[in-house]
C-alpha cells in the first residue's frame, strides 16, 4: 500500500470510493486521485441511468439524515441541480451488511438490500474562476451514527481525494464559525477569510473562506494532524461568538485588509477561539 495512506488502511480495506457523474462531466474528471484508481477499485455510476436508482435514493437518504437535524431544509432540487448536473458526487461506500440494524433503519436501507451503501458524500460546484470550486456538501454517516457506521476520519479522506477528482486548484466554502470542520479544512492549507460576518447567510456567524489547493499539502494532510505546514504564525485569536469582533473584521476585509485562518480552533470551556493572521 502507498505509504501515504498508512493511517487510512482500515478505511481503504473496508470501504470503496464511488463517483456519481454524468456523461457530460465524466471526461473532465481525474479517475485516479492520489493514485487510487476509481476504475479498478471504485464504483463509477451515471446518475442519469435508471439502473442506479437504488443507490441514488440512498445518497438522498444520507443527505436528509445529515442535514435534517440542522433544520437547514435543502430544497428537493438542490442535489440534482447544484451537484449531479454541474459536477458530480464523490464519496465512500460500504457493504450494507457492514452496518448495524439501527444504522440501516436510519438510512432507510431496504430490508432485502445487500449492495453498496454511501457512507460519505462530497459535492462542490464549479465557479467561473478557472479551476476554482465552491464547497457545497461534505457529510458522513458518522456525523449522525457516531462511530458506528464507517471507519474513523472517512470525511478527511473523502475531501482529500474529492479535491483531486474534480481537479480543484482553489476551493471556496462557507462554514459556521463554531464548526469543527474548520479544523479539517485548515489541515489542507491556510484559509483566506472572504467574509467574517456573513450577512447573506442564514447563520451570519459563518465564515466564507478560500483555500488554494496544492497536491503536496493535500498529501501532507493525510499524514499530519493539525494545521497545514503552509500556514504562517497567528497574529491573534478570534473569539467566534464575539459578534462585534466579527463585524469589525468584516469591515476591515471590505476595505482591503487580509485575514487568514492559520490553525485549529481551540475550545476551553464555553469559549471557542480560532487563530488568525492579519496582514495589510
Amino acid at each position: 500500500m502507498n505509504p501515504l495512506f498508512t493511517h487510512f488502511r482500515r478505511a481503504l480495506d473496508e470501504c470503496m470510493p464511488y463517483l456519481l457523474t454524468t456523461q457530460q462531466n465524466y471526461p473532465q474528471l481525474e479517475l485516479a486521485p492520489l493514485g487510487i484508481s476509481l476504475k479498478k477499485r471504485g464504483l463509477i455510476l451515471d446518475p442519469q441511468l435508471r439502473e442506479n436508482e437504488e443507490f441514488l435514493h440512498l445518497v438522498q437518504n444520507l443527505d436528509r439524515l445529515t442535514f435534517g437535524p440542522l433544520e437547514m431544509t435543502m430544497p428537493k432540487w438542490v442535489s440534482y441541480d447544484a451537484g449531479i448536473m454541474p459536477s458530480g458526487i464523490f464519496g465512500f461506500c460500504g457493504r450494507a451488511s457492514s452496518l448495524d440494524q439501527w444504522v440501516r433503519r436510519a438510512l432507510k436501507v431496504p430490508e432485502d438490500y445487500e449492495g453498496l451503501v454511501p457512507l460519505t458524500q462530497f459535492i462542490a460546484i464549479p465557479t467561473p474562476e478557472r479551476n476554482a470550486w465552491y464547497l457545497h456538501t461534505i457529510s458522513s454517516l458518522n456525523q449522525v451514527c457516531m462511530g458506528a457506521a464507517a471507519p474513523a476520519n472517512l470525511t478527511l479522506l473523502t475531501i482529500c481525494l474529492g479535491v483531486r477528482v474534480f481537479r480543484m486548484q482553489r476551493l471556496y466554502g462557507a462554514t459556521q464559525w463554531r464548526s469543527s470542520r474548520l479544523g479539517m479544512y485548515v489541515g489542507l492549507g491556510p484559509l483566506e477569510i472572504i467574509t467574517a460576518y456573513t450577512h447573506n447567510h442564514s447563520v451570519k456567524k459563518s465564515v466564507t473562506w478560500r483555500l488554494d489547493i496544492q497536491r503536496a499539502l493535500v498529501e501532507a494532510a493525510l499524514i499530519n494532524d493539525g494545521a497545514s505546514v503552509a500556514a504562517q504564525p497567528a497574529t491573534h485569536m478570534i473569539d467566534v461568538d464575539d459578534i462585534e469582533a466579527l463585524k469589525r473584521i468584516q469591515t476591515e476585509i471590505e476595505s482591503g485588509v487580509k485575514y487568514h485562518i492559520v490553525g485549529q480552533p481551540s475550545t476551553r470551556g464555553s469559549i471557542v477561539q480560532v487563530p488568525v493572521r492579519r496582514s495589510e
Binding site: 430544497p75 460546484i125 462557507a174 447563520v203
Partner: peptide, 12 residues
C-alpha cells in the same frame, strides 16, 4: 432559504 441562495446562487 437564505443559505441556499448564498451557497448555490451567489457564491458559485
Amino acid at each position: 432559504d437564505k443559505w441556499v441562495f448564498y451557497d448555490i446562487c451567489y457564491m458559485p
